[in-house]
Every structure is written in structure tokens, then in C-alpha cells.
Design a protein around this nucleic acid. Structure first.
Length: 585
DNA sequence: GCGGATCAC
DNA sequence: TATGGTGATCCGC
């Protein structure tokens, strides 16, 4: 975009935004970022007076170490559908092709390239975009449509890498090393074919980056966008040269804030990271330090992994609404939010051991509060019961508060998928391993699988898979009930939990120290007892898990996160015809 | 472990 | 008139 146009765009954005609550909040955030940067600069000035020889050696040592780990043997590809939602909409409504339009009401989720010429961007408020481009057509989201289109694309890329990794609905990482070898084809040619095939079959254009690892591939897919590709050779010199002049912001993980902070200490490009290496760890922390060293060297992950194999860490829901201050209305909204979350918890088959309430005030300030209920929960009644005290406390903290958003999220998840839970609580003698074969699967599913193997998968009736799923689900529910009771017994030392569903606890000013965890707790007797129960039960769970999971060594801490079981993998594989094919030859 | 903040899409 | 939802991670305390 031309500089003078760019200026006009930002001027318009400023004019329509200034004075709004949103804008005021942005300004406040900007101010605090400026202060943070001042602190960073002062710290750097202090460091400059010190001898940082040690830090420099530490950095150089890390560079050496990282260099040894450099793996140039893999060919990784990042593919990215161009303006995906907009492209899908255009297929249904070809008349949109030549006019600027955006997808998403209120805030633009994405927009086509015509709209971008006017300065419209994803994430922009609808009314601002309309100001920039009065003829902009705004259409609502059709999530189901995008999901099914994405599936069409995936059915093609699976032929290039059956273990591809979905990074989001419209992005994927592939490892095509083996594909290229097997077909004696150059990566660039293979990806040209892939892009052509995707376009022919789905009418979606995609951009691709080809490089030695995921970090580089992701950057490369942005180089010739839209509908283009870029390959960075798997050579150290080429990679170093590429990174040297690359603005830090281009790297995944460097956002608006980190870019500004780095800029302030004189780092605009990844190459400039090197000259600052002795400061980085003290200025930005150890994690950021090694991340930046990886950026300087152009290192990244060389493995890709199906997304289903990643473990989920939270389930949550949130929504924005017209400013609301009436406590009764807020309770009603909380109740509704709890009901929404229950649906997601059931859908994903999890209970949560902690519950997090998020609110956004009318000023756009965001606050979160969390509790650990005395048991893991997922039902709306429980979600509401345990989040209400947090809401009440916030009302005390901000008298007369008005909200524009409310959200609930469960973390420290407990999987309700039977295999996981059984293994977790020691009902299986051996933890499933990653590469265990299909025969290690037990129960209903295995029998079904044995049957299937005798037949040809393509001829197998889809409904029988559903039957298997349903049978298994019934099994799970029954066993889960038994298991749940067993767990509760163990967790509470045989004490009965007395439910008290209606009474809302008041928040006392007084605090007592819990004798188990030694932390201050509300002095309300019931709440205090519940908390103590939890503290005790945590210890009990540790004991149970250690007994069940480990032969001798009980020093390992509570494994909150467990590897996904083989059974889970098989189930996800069965839901995809291409992968099913892989399983059965 | 909690709450704020950042980041990606 | 008016600025999203979901999930992850890191830091300071």
C-alpha cells in the first residue's frame, strides 16, 4: 500500500476510534507498555556497566549446543489457505469475487483482497472497516461450511503426508521427506503438484513454504502469498543469511509487544539478536533467550504430529454482550455461561479440577479469578455453584461493576474417556506406550477391529463403526460411574460429601490458615472444611496414582497430563477414511 | 498455584 | 451506536 494511503488509513482509524472506551483502554495499555520498555532500557543501561563476559560465554555455549542439534535432513512444508473463509464464501456466491467484502459481524474475521486494498484487516471492528470502505459487504460466519471445505483440503494433503499436522482450520504442516524420496521428486515440484491438485479439486488457492523445520516453513509460506510458494534450501549458510535480515515480527511467537521491546534494545532483525546475546536472558528471561537464539540460528521443530495427539489443557467458553451491571442479570448470564460450558465439557469428555471465571469490564479491562472445587466438575449446576462466589467477590472488589464479557474455563482436566481414566487410576497394569501396536487394544473395540481386519475396509459399512462407538460409549458410562464412586471414596477417606446445592456462601473477611497446605482460606466453616478435604484428597490422589502407575519409584510427581492412549489414536484414525486405510494396509 | 499479559488464528 | 472467541504459554509474585 502506498505510504500516503497508509497514512490516510491510520488517520481514519484514529478518527473513528478516539474517545471510545476501547480506544482509551488501548491507550492505557500502550502507556503501560511504554513504562515496561523504559524499565527494560534502564535495566540494559545498568547491565552495560557490568561485566557480562559470563553471559556472553553462556550464550556462545548455547549457540554451539544448538548448532550441534541442527537437523537439515527433513523437508517440512507449511501450507496456508489464502483468505480462507472469504475464499469459501466466494465459491458459494461468485458475485462477491469482484467486490470488497468481509466475513464476521462486529469484528472482521477475515476479508478478501479487494477489501484489504482499502485498509481492512482481520480483527478490525466492523464499523471501522465500513468507514475505510463504505461499499464493504459484511457477511456472517458459516463455520460448518469452512470446516467441511477444510476437510476436502485435508483429504488431498494426506496423500503427501499421512501424519500431517493441522495447525488450525486453514493451516497445516507436512513432512514430505519420505514422499519425495519414494517418488523421486523435488520438494518444490511436489508442492506445486499439491497446490494444483488442491485448487483443481477444491477451488481453494493455497500458499506454501518449504524449509528444514516448521519455524522456517511458516515464515516461507508468507513470502509469496497469495497463491505462491517459497523454498528455503536446507543449507546452513542460506538459512543464516535468510534470518539475518528477517524482521523479528515475522517469526511466529513475536507479536506486537515483543517486537517493540526488541526494537527498543536495538534488535529489529533476527540477525541483530546475536550482538545482543549477552543481555537477552536477563532482560527477557531464560525462555525468551533460548527462543531468540533459535531464531538467530533459524532452528525449529523438524517433526510434525497429528493434532489429535496433542493433549488438551483447557475447555472454556466466553461471550460478549451489551454492558450489564444488574447483579441479577449477571447471575443469569453466569448461569447461562455455565450451561454453555457444560455442553463443551460433555462434547470433549472432560471434567475440570479447576474453574476459571473471566470478566471484561465496560472499560475493556480484563480480570480472571479461579477456584479449585472439592471435586472435579463439568455439570452446569456445579460450574455455576463454584463460579458464583468468584463473581460476588468481584462485585465487592469493583462496586457497581458493569461487564461486557463473561467466560468460564476448566483446567487441570480429567479425561472421561474410559481408557485414559482407567490407566490413570491403575486399572491397567501397564501404561500404554506410543508405538504399541493395534493388538494391545482391549475390549469391545478390539473385537470390532479384528472383525474389520477380515473384511476389506472400503466395503465396511459406516454404520458398524458407529455401533462400535455407541457400544463403547455405553460401556464407558457404566464403568465410569463405578470408577467415579471408587475415586471419590479414595479421595475423601471414606467421608461422605454432603451436597449443599442451594445455599450461596457469603464471603467472610476473616481468613484461617489451612493446616494441610498452610495457605490462608476463607473462615466460612463449610468452605474451609471443603478446602481441607481437597488438600487431603490431592495427597490421596498422588498416593493412588503412584501406587498404580509406578513399580518402585514413587518420587515422581502427580502426572496431571498423560500420553494419549493407543485407543484414542485408533478412534481418531477411524473417523478419517484415509487414515483408516493406513491402519488396515 | 494465581492472575496478568501476550500470542496465534 | 459500535472493537471476537478459543486455547496455550510465560512471568512475577
Amino acid at each position: 500500500m502506498e505510504p500516503h494511503l497508509l497514512y490516510q488509513v491510520s488517520e481514519i482509524i484514529y478518527d473513528v476510534s478516539k474517545g471510545s472506551k476501547f480506544f482509551n483502554n488501548e491507550e492505557a495499555r500502550d502507556k503501560s507498555l511504554t513504562l515496561k520498555i523504559d524499565r527494560i532500557l534502564k535495566k540494559k543501561a545498568d547491565l552495560e556497566r557490568l561485566d557480562l563476559g559470563n553471559d556472553k560465554r553462556k550464550a556462545d555455549h548455547l549457540i554451539e549446543e544448538l548448532e550441534l542439534s541442527r537437523d537439515l535432513s527433513q523437508t517440512i512444508v507449511h501450507i496456508d489457505c489464502d483468505a480462507f473463509y472469504a475464499a469459501v464464501e466466494e465459491l458459494d456466491r461468485p458475485e462477491l469475487k469482484d467486490v470488497p467484502f468481509s466475513v464476521g459481524k462486529g469484528v472482521l474475521t477475515t476479508c478478501n483482497y479487494h477489501a484489504r486494498k482499502f485498509g481492512c484487516r482481520s480483527g478490525m471492528a466492523g464499523f471501522v472497516a465500513k468507514k475505510l470502505c463504505p461499499q464493504l459487504i459484511q457477511i456472517p460466519l458459516n463455520f460448518d461450511k469452512y470446516t467441511s471445505k477444510a476437510q476436502e483440503v485435508r483429504e488431498i494433503i494426506v496423500d503427501y503426508d499421512p501424519r500431517f499436522e493441522s495447525a488450525s482450520i486453514d493451516e497445516a504442516y507436512l513432512n514430505i521427506t519420505e514422499y519425495c524420496e519414494r517418488n523421486s521428486i523435488e520438494p518444490a515440484t511436489a508442492i506445486e503438484n499439491l497446490r494444483r491438485e488442491v485448487h483443481e479439486k477444491t477451488k481453494i488457492t493455497i500458499s506454501a513454504g518449504i524449509a528444514a523445520n516448521t519455524k522456517l516453513a511458516k515464515i516461507c509460506s508468507n513470502m509469496n502469498k497469495p497463491n505462491g510458494q517459497f523454498q528455503l534450501p536446507n543449507e546452513r549458510a542460506a538459512i543464516m543469511a535468510f534470518m539475518r535480515d528477517l524482521p523479528t515480527r515475522k517469526v511466529n511467537g513475536v507479536g506486537r509487544v515483543f517486537e517493540r521491546e526488541l526494537d527498543a534494545v536495538g534488535v529489529k532483525t533476527c540477525g541483530e539478536i546475536y550482538s545482543c546475546r549477552q543481555y537477552l536472558s536477563k532482560l527477557f528471561g531464560e525462555k525468551a533467550f533460548s527462543f531468540l537464539m533459535g531464531c538467530y540460528l533459524g532452528l525449529g521443530r523438524t517433526s510434525v504430529q497429528p493434532a489429535e495427539e496433542f493433549e488438551r489443557k483447557s475447555v472454556g467458553t466466553e461471550s460478549t454482550f451489551a454492558e450489564m451491571g444488574d447483579p441479577t442479570a449477571l447471575r443469569k448470564k453466569l448461569r447461562w455461561t455455565a450451561e454453555e460450558l457444560e455442553k463443551d465439557m460433555v462434547r470433549t469428555q472432560f471434567k475440570g479440577r479447576t474453574l476459571c471465571l473471566k470478566v471484561k469490564l465496560h472499560t475493556f479491562e480484563v480480570f480472571t479469578r479461579q477456584v479449585v472445587p472439592p471435586k472435579s466438575i463439568y455439570q452446569a449446576d456445579d460450574l455455576y455453584k463454584y463460579s458464583l462466589p468468584m463473581l460476588l467477590k468481584l462485585e465487592q472488589e469493583f462496586p457497581g461493576m458493569k461487564l461486557r464479557l463473561m467466560g468460564l474455563r476448566c483446567t487441570h482436566l480429567l479425561s472421561m474417556k474410559k481408557a485414559d481414566t482407567m490407566a490413570f487410576f491403575g486399572y491397567k497394569t501397564k501404561m500404554p506406550t506410543d508405538d504399541s501396536d493395534i493388538n494391545s487394544t482391549s475390549g469391545t473395540l478390539k473385537r470390532k477391529l479384528d472383525d474389520i481386519e477380515e473384511e476389506h475396509w472400503e466395503e465396511y459399512d459406516e454404520r458398524l463403526f458407529e455401533d462400535a462407538e455407541r457400544l463403547e460409549r455405553e460401556d464407558e458410562l457404566n464403568e465410569l460411574e463405578t470408577l467415579s464412586q471408587e475415586i471419590d471414596k479414595r479421595r475423601h477417606h471414606g467421608k461422605e460429601i454432603v451436597p449443599n446445592p442451594k445455599k450461596v456462601e457469603t464471603l467472610d473477611e476473616e481468613w484461617w490458615d489451612c493446616p494441610v497446605c498452610l495457605r490462608p482460606q476463607r473462615s466460612n466453616e463449610k468452605a474451609f472444611n471443603e478446602h481441607m478435604d481437597l488438600c487431603l484428597s490431592r495427597q490421596t490422589i498422588r498416593d493412588v496414582v503412584q501406587e498404580a502407575t509406578f513399580d518402585k519409584d514413587v518420587s515422581t510427581p502427580l502426572p496431571l497430563k498423560r500420553p494419549k492412549t493407543e485407543r484414542g489414536k485408533i478412534k481418531s484414525a477411524l473417523s478419517d477414511p484415509k487414515q483408516r486405510k493406513l491402519f488396515f494396509g
